[in-house]
Amino acid sequence: MDWIDLLSSNIYYVSRMNFSKEKPAILSLQYYSYPDAMGGAWNLTHEINKRLVERGHRVVIITCKPDDKYPDQEEINGVEFDRVSFAVSKDPIRLWHAIRRKVKHHLREEESWVAHVHHPLVGAFALTTKCYRQIPKIYHFHSSWYDEEKINLTETDQGKINLYFRLKIIRWLEWVCYRYSKSILFLSEYTRKRFLDYFPFKKPRMRIIPGGADTTKFYPSENSNELNAIRNRLGIPAGHKFLLTVRRLEARMGLDNLITAIAEIVNRSPELKFKLVIAGKGSLNDKLKSQATLSGLDDHIRFCGFVPDNLLPGYYAAADIFIMPTTFIEGFG
Protein backbone atom coordinates (compact mmCIF):
# COMPACT_ATOMS: atom_id res chain seq x y z
CA MET A 1 0.00 0.00 0.00
CA ASP A 2 1.53 3.37 -1.01
CA TRP A 3 0.96 6.78 0.58
CA ILE A 4 -1.95 7.71 -1.72
CA ASP A 5 -3.62 4.41 -0.85
CA LEU A 6 -3.29 5.40 2.82
CA LEU A 7 -4.85 8.80 2.12
CA SER A 8 -7.64 7.26 0.05
CA SER A 9 -8.43 4.84 2.87
CA ASN A 10 -8.54 7.74 5.32
CA ILE A 11 -10.93 9.67 3.06
CA TYR A 12 -13.15 6.61 2.90
CA TYR A 13 -13.01 6.30 6.69
CA VAL A 14 -14.20 9.85 7.37
CA SER A 15 -16.89 9.72 4.68
CA ARG A 16 -18.32 6.23 5.04
CA MET A 17 -20.93 7.12 7.69
CA ASN A 18 -22.12 10.12 5.68
CA PHE A 19 -22.38 8.81 2.15
CA SER A 20 -23.14 5.71 0.21
CA LYS A 21 -20.99 6.97 -2.68
CA GLU A 22 -17.65 5.16 -2.77
CA LYS A 23 -15.55 8.08 -3.99
CA PRO A 24 -16.63 11.49 -2.68
CA ALA A 25 -15.41 14.71 -4.26
CA ILE A 26 -12.55 16.44 -2.44
CA LEU A 27 -12.69 20.13 -1.53
CA SER A 28 -9.05 21.10 -0.95
CA LEU A 29 -8.57 24.31 1.05
CA GLN A 30 -5.18 25.98 0.68
CA TYR A 31 -3.93 29.54 1.02
CA TYR A 32 -1.37 29.03 -1.75
CA SER A 33 -0.87 26.03 -4.01
CA TYR A 34 1.47 24.63 -6.63
CA PRO A 35 2.18 25.72 -9.37
CA ASP A 36 1.20 29.25 -8.30
CA ALA A 37 3.73 29.09 -5.45
CA MET A 38 6.70 26.82 -4.85
CA GLY A 39 7.58 25.01 -1.65
CA GLY A 40 7.70 21.54 -0.15
CA ALA A 41 4.17 21.50 1.31
CA TRP A 42 2.64 23.02 -1.82
CA ASN A 43 4.38 20.49 -4.06
CA LEU A 44 3.22 17.68 -1.78
CA THR A 45 -0.41 18.79 -1.85
CA HIS A 46 -0.32 19.07 -5.63
CA GLU A 47 0.99 15.52 -5.95
CA ILE A 48 -1.71 14.32 -3.55
CA ASN A 49 -4.49 16.07 -5.47
CA LYS A 50 -3.21 14.90 -8.85
CA ARG A 51 -3.09 11.29 -7.72
CA LEU A 52 -6.52 11.45 -6.10
CA VAL A 53 -7.88 12.53 -9.49
CA GLU A 54 -6.11 9.56 -11.09
CA ARG A 55 -7.95 7.32 -8.61
CA GLY A 56 -11.34 8.60 -9.62
CA HIS A 57 -11.96 11.46 -7.17
CA ARG A 58 -13.06 14.88 -8.30
CA VAL A 59 -10.74 17.45 -6.64
CA VAL A 60 -11.55 21.16 -6.35
CA ILE A 61 -9.01 23.56 -4.82
CA ILE A 62 -10.00 26.88 -3.29
CA THR A 63 -6.78 28.87 -3.06
CA CYS A 64 -5.38 32.42 -3.30
CA LYS A 65 -3.32 34.02 -6.03
CA PRO A 66 0.24 35.08 -5.08
CA ASP A 67 -0.19 37.64 -7.86
CA ASP A 68 -2.83 38.35 -10.46
CA LYS A 69 -1.21 36.66 -13.46
CA TYR A 70 -3.18 33.46 -12.76
CA PRO A 71 -6.74 32.89 -14.04
CA ASP A 72 -9.67 32.73 -11.63
CA GLN A 73 -10.49 29.18 -12.69
CA GLU A 74 -8.55 26.53 -14.57
CA GLU A 75 -7.86 22.81 -14.60
CA ILE A 76 -4.35 21.39 -14.06
CA ASN A 77 -3.76 17.62 -14.20
CA GLY A 78 -7.50 17.10 -13.74
CA VAL A 79 -7.54 19.26 -10.55
CA GLU A 80 -10.02 22.16 -10.65
CA PHE A 81 -8.58 25.45 -9.36
CA ASP A 82 -10.85 28.20 -8.00
CA ARG A 83 -8.67 31.17 -7.03
CA VAL A 84 -9.23 34.22 -4.86
CA SER A 85 -7.68 37.41 -6.28
CA PHE A 86 -4.44 38.74 -4.80
CA ALA A 87 -5.99 41.96 -3.49
CA VAL A 88 -8.87 40.13 -1.80
CA SER A 89 -6.48 37.59 -0.22
CA LYS A 90 -4.68 40.37 1.66
CA ASP A 91 -7.86 41.76 3.26
CA PRO A 92 -9.21 39.39 5.97
CA ILE A 93 -12.83 40.56 5.69
CA ARG A 94 -12.94 40.35 1.91
CA LEU A 95 -11.14 37.00 2.01
CA TRP A 96 -13.71 35.67 4.50
CA HIS A 97 -16.56 36.68 2.16
CA ALA A 98 -14.77 35.20 -0.87
CA ILE A 99 -14.12 31.85 0.85
CA ARG A 100 -17.73 31.62 2.05
CA ARG A 101 -19.04 32.38 -1.44
CA LYS A 102 -16.82 29.82 -3.16
CA VAL A 103 -17.53 27.10 -0.59
CA LYS A 104 -21.28 27.61 -0.91
CA HIS A 105 -21.01 27.55 -4.71
CA HIS A 106 -19.24 24.17 -4.80
CA LEU A 107 -21.17 22.45 -2.02
CA ARG A 108 -24.42 23.40 -3.76
CA GLU A 109 -23.52 20.87 -6.45
CA GLU A 110 -25.18 17.45 -6.15
CA GLU A 111 -22.14 15.52 -4.98
CA SER A 112 -20.86 13.94 -1.79
CA TRP A 113 -17.94 15.98 -0.42
CA VAL A 114 -15.00 15.60 1.95
CA ALA A 115 -12.94 18.68 2.86
CA HIS A 116 -9.16 18.34 2.88
CA VAL A 117 -7.79 21.34 4.81
CA HIS A 118 -4.18 22.43 4.37
CA HIS A 119 -4.30 25.94 5.86
CA PRO A 120 -6.18 26.99 9.02
CA LEU A 121 -7.14 30.49 7.86
CA VAL A 122 -9.02 29.19 4.81
CA GLY A 123 -10.37 26.27 6.83
CA ALA A 124 -11.64 28.49 9.67
CA PHE A 125 -13.33 30.92 7.27
CA ALA A 126 -15.04 27.98 5.53
CA LEU A 127 -16.41 26.81 8.89
CA THR A 128 -18.62 29.90 9.07
CA THR A 129 -20.85 28.34 6.40
CA LYS A 130 -23.46 25.82 7.50
CA CYS A 131 -23.13 23.60 4.43
CA TYR A 132 -19.39 23.21 5.06
CA ARG A 133 -19.83 22.30 8.72
CA GLN A 134 -22.12 19.44 7.62
CA ILE A 135 -19.48 17.62 5.53
CA PRO A 136 -16.62 15.51 6.98
CA LYS A 137 -13.24 17.21 7.20
CA ILE A 138 -9.63 16.00 7.15
CA TYR A 139 -6.90 18.35 8.37
CA HIS A 140 -3.39 17.91 6.94
CA PHE A 141 -0.95 19.06 9.62
CA HIS A 142 2.13 20.04 7.59
CA SER A 143 3.34 22.10 10.57
CA SER A 144 1.93 24.50 13.12
CA TRP A 145 1.12 27.88 11.56
CA TYR A 146 1.63 29.31 15.04
CA ASP A 147 5.23 28.02 15.15
CA GLU A 148 6.06 29.31 11.67
CA GLU A 149 4.58 32.75 12.24
CA LYS A 150 6.28 33.08 15.62
CA ILE A 151 9.63 32.70 13.86
CA ASN A 152 8.74 34.90 10.87
CA LEU A 153 7.16 37.70 12.93
CA THR A 154 10.03 37.73 15.42
CA GLU A 155 12.48 37.99 12.52
CA THR A 156 10.63 41.07 11.17
CA ASP A 157 10.50 42.75 14.63
CA GLN A 158 6.71 43.11 14.86
CA GLY A 159 6.66 44.35 18.45
CA LYS A 160 5.67 42.32 21.49
CA ILE A 161 2.01 43.41 21.74
CA ASN A 162 1.29 42.94 18.02
CA LEU A 163 3.09 39.60 18.05
CA TYR A 164 1.15 38.41 21.11
CA PHE A 165 -2.30 39.12 19.66
CA ARG A 166 -1.52 37.83 16.17
CA LEU A 167 -0.24 34.56 17.58
CA LYS A 168 -3.32 34.20 19.82
CA ILE A 169 -5.59 34.61 16.78
CA ILE A 170 -3.56 32.11 14.76
CA ARG A 171 -3.70 29.55 17.58
CA TRP A 172 -7.48 29.96 17.85
CA LEU A 173 -7.93 29.50 14.08
CA GLU A 174 -5.87 26.31 14.14
CA TRP A 175 -7.63 24.87 17.18
CA VAL A 176 -11.05 25.50 15.63
CA CYS A 177 -10.02 23.59 12.50
CA TYR A 178 -8.70 20.66 14.56
CA ARG A 179 -11.86 20.60 16.66
CA TYR A 180 -14.12 20.19 13.60
CA SER A 181 -11.92 17.61 11.84
CA LYS A 182 -12.66 13.89 11.88
CA SER A 183 -9.06 13.03 11.12
CA ILE A 184 -5.62 14.68 11.29
CA LEU A 185 -2.85 13.61 8.90
CA PHE A 186 0.89 13.95 9.55
CA LEU A 187 4.04 13.56 7.48
CA SER A 188 6.09 12.14 10.34
CA GLU A 189 6.12 11.12 14.00
CA TYR A 190 7.81 14.47 14.72
CA THR A 191 4.81 16.48 13.46
CA ARG A 192 2.39 14.16 15.25
CA LYS A 193 4.19 14.76 18.56
CA ARG A 194 4.19 18.51 17.96
CA PHE A 195 0.43 18.36 17.41
CA LEU A 196 -0.06 16.41 20.66
CA ASP A 197 1.88 19.08 22.56
CA TYR A 198 0.16 21.97 20.79
CA PHE A 199 -3.51 20.90 20.90
CA PRO A 200 -4.57 20.20 24.52
CA PHE A 201 -8.14 19.03 23.84
CA LYS A 202 -9.72 15.76 22.72
CA LYS A 203 -7.84 14.48 19.71
CA PRO A 204 -9.46 13.42 16.41
CA ARG A 205 -8.32 10.24 14.66
CA MET A 206 -4.62 10.63 13.81
CA ARG A 207 -2.71 9.00 10.98
CA ILE A 208 0.91 9.34 9.79
CA ILE A 209 1.26 9.21 6.00
CA PRO A 210 4.96 9.51 5.06
CA GLY A 211 6.02 11.46 2.00
CA GLY A 212 7.57 9.93 -1.08
CA ALA A 213 9.69 10.67 -4.12
CA ASP A 214 8.81 10.19 -7.76
CA THR A 215 11.52 7.72 -8.76
CA THR A 216 10.76 8.23 -12.45
CA LYS A 217 12.21 11.76 -12.01
CA PHE A 218 14.62 11.50 -9.08
CA TYR A 219 17.22 8.77 -9.47
CA PRO A 220 21.04 8.44 -9.69
CA SER A 221 22.28 9.23 -13.16
CA GLU A 222 25.20 7.57 -14.94
CA ASN A 223 25.20 10.14 -17.75
CA SER A 224 28.52 11.83 -16.90
CA ASN A 225 28.27 14.30 -19.80
CA GLU A 226 24.91 15.55 -18.58
CA LEU A 227 26.07 15.78 -14.96
CA ASN A 228 29.27 17.62 -15.93
CA ALA A 229 27.23 20.06 -18.02
CA ILE A 230 25.08 20.88 -14.98
CA ARG A 231 28.16 21.33 -12.77
CA ASN A 232 29.77 23.59 -15.37
CA ARG A 233 26.61 25.67 -15.69
CA LEU A 234 26.62 26.19 -11.93
CA GLY A 235 30.29 27.15 -11.88
CA ILE A 236 31.55 24.05 -10.03
CA PRO A 237 35.27 23.81 -10.89
CA ALA A 238 36.73 20.43 -11.82
CA GLY A 239 37.85 18.48 -8.80
CA HIS A 240 35.54 20.36 -6.44
CA LYS A 241 32.77 18.75 -4.40
CA PHE A 242 29.28 20.02 -5.22
CA LEU A 243 27.22 20.77 -2.09
CA LEU A 244 23.53 21.51 -2.63
CA THR A 245 20.67 22.86 -0.56
CA VAL A 246 17.19 23.63 -1.91
CA ARG A 247 15.31 25.90 0.50
CA ARG A 248 13.01 28.88 0.76
CA LEU A 249 15.22 31.71 2.00
CA GLU A 250 13.35 32.20 5.27
CA ALA A 251 14.35 32.34 8.94
CA ARG A 252 13.55 28.79 10.02
CA MET A 253 15.48 27.20 7.15
CA GLY A 254 18.82 27.64 8.94
CA LEU A 255 20.73 29.02 5.97
CA ASP A 256 22.50 31.62 8.11
CA ASN A 257 23.86 28.77 10.24
CA LEU A 258 24.92 26.90 7.12
CA ILE A 259 26.87 29.91 5.83
CA THR A 260 28.52 30.27 9.25
CA ALA A 261 29.46 26.58 9.15
CA ILE A 262 30.93 26.92 5.64
CA ALA A 263 33.04 29.87 6.85
CA GLU A 264 34.32 27.76 9.75
CA ILE A 265 35.22 24.88 7.39
CA VAL A 266 37.11 27.23 5.07
CA ASN A 267 39.02 28.77 7.99
CA ARG A 268 39.93 25.40 9.51
CA SER A 269 40.65 23.49 6.29
CA PRO A 270 41.42 25.94 3.47
CA GLU A 271 42.77 23.09 1.34
CA LEU A 272 39.29 21.55 0.89
CA LYS A 273 37.84 22.12 -2.56
CA PHE A 274 34.08 22.52 -2.69
CA LYS A 275 31.26 24.84 -3.70
CA LEU A 276 27.85 25.20 -2.06
CA VAL A 277 24.88 25.99 -4.31
CA ILE A 278 21.87 27.51 -2.54
CA ALA A 279 18.72 27.12 -4.66
CA GLY A 280 15.59 29.03 -3.72
CA LYS A 281 14.14 32.46 -3.15
CA GLY A 282 12.70 34.28 -0.16
CA SER A 283 12.68 37.35 2.04
CA LEU A 284 16.23 36.78 3.37
CA ASN A 285 17.87 36.70 -0.07
CA ASP A 286 19.79 39.98 0.28
CA LYS A 287 20.69 39.36 3.93
CA LEU A 288 22.12 35.90 3.23
CA LYS A 289 24.09 37.08 0.20
CA SER A 290 25.55 39.89 2.29
CA GLN A 291 26.51 37.42 5.02
CA ALA A 292 28.29 35.20 2.50
CA THR A 293 30.20 38.16 1.01
CA LEU A 294 31.21 39.59 4.39
CA SER A 295 32.42 36.11 5.38
CA GLY A 296 34.66 36.00 2.28
CA LEU A 297 32.75 33.08 0.76
CA ASP A 298 31.93 34.37 -2.72
CA ASP A 299 34.22 31.70 -4.21
CA HIS A 300 32.59 28.95 -2.13
CA ILE A 301 28.88 29.78 -2.25
CA ARG A 302 26.60 30.45 -5.20
CA PHE A 303 23.00 31.64 -4.92
CA CYS A 304 21.18 30.45 -8.03
CA GLY A 305 17.67 31.65 -7.14
CA PHE A 306 14.51 29.72 -7.87
CA VAL A 307 15.09 26.47 -9.78
CA PRO A 308 12.15 25.14 -11.84
CA ASP A 309 10.90 21.65 -11.02
CA ASN A 310 12.06 20.25 -14.34
CA LEU A 311 15.70 21.13 -13.53
CA LEU A 312 15.77 19.93 -9.92
CA PRO A 313 16.31 16.19 -10.66
CA GLY A 314 19.50 17.07 -12.53
CA TYR A 315 20.76 19.25 -9.67
CA TYR A 316 20.18 16.46 -7.14
CA ALA A 317 21.83 13.88 -9.40
CA ALA A 318 24.89 16.07 -10.00
CA ALA A 319 25.43 17.00 -6.34
CA ASP A 320 27.89 15.12 -4.15
CA ILE A 321 26.18 16.12 -0.89
CA PHE A 322 22.69 17.45 -0.15
CA ILE A 323 22.33 19.58 3.01
CA MET A 324 19.11 20.33 4.88
CA PRO A 325 20.03 22.84 7.62
CA THR A 326 16.52 23.52 8.96
CA THR A 327 16.64 24.69 12.58
CA PHE A 328 12.95 24.36 13.45
CA ILE A 329 9.69 22.84 12.17
CA GLU A 330 10.92 20.39 9.57
CA GLY A 331 8.03 18.15 8.59
CA PHE A 332 10.31 15.19 7.90
CA GLY A 333 11.39 15.28 11.55
Rank of each mutant, 00 (worst) to 15 (best):
N225H: 12
F303M: 05
P136R: 04
S295V: 12
G211C: 12
Q134A: 14
F141M: 07
A229F: 06
F242C: 04
W172H: 07
G254Y: 02
I301S: 06
Y32E: 12
C177K: 00
A126D: 12
R192T: 03
G39V: 11
H97T: 02
T327G: 07
R207E: 15
V84Y: 01
I184D: 03
F195M: 01
E149L: 10
P24R: 10
A279P: 01
F303W: 07
S183Y: 03
I4G: 06
D72K: 12
S283C: 01
S181T: 04
H106F: 15
R192P: 02
E264I: 10
I151P: 01
D157R: 08
E174K: 01
G331N: 02
K241E: 04
T45M: 15
Q73G: 00
K130Y: 03
P200E: 07
S33A: 15
E109W: 10
I209N: 04
K193N: 14
D197W: 09
Y198Q: 07
K21S: 12
F322L: 08
R58H: 04
D147R: 03
L29S: 03
I301F: 10
V103I: 14
H240L: 01
I61Q: 09
S112I: 00
F195W: 02
L6D: 00
D82S: 10
L258I: 01
L196S: 05
I262V: 15
I170Q: 08
A292H: 08
H140M: 06
H240G: 02
T326I: 08
L52I: 05
K137V: 13
E75V: 15
A317Y: 06
T45K: 00
F199A: 05
N257Q: 10
Q73D: 14
I209V: 15
T260V: 02
A319R: 02
K193E: 13
K203V: 07
R247D: 00
E109V: 09
T293H: 11
R205M: 12
D214G: 09
S221D: 13
P237E: 11
K241F: 11
L227T: 09
K90R: 15
P136Y: 11
H105G: 00
H240F: 14
Q73C: 13
L52W: 04
E189N: 10
L44T: 15
F125C: 14
Q30F: 00
A87N: 07
H300A: 04
D320T: 07
P237Y: 06
S15Y: 06
P136I: 09
L163H: 08
F274Y: 12
D286Q: 14
G239F: 06
G235I: 09
S20R: 13
K193H: 14
P35S: 09
T260D: 14
I301Y: 10
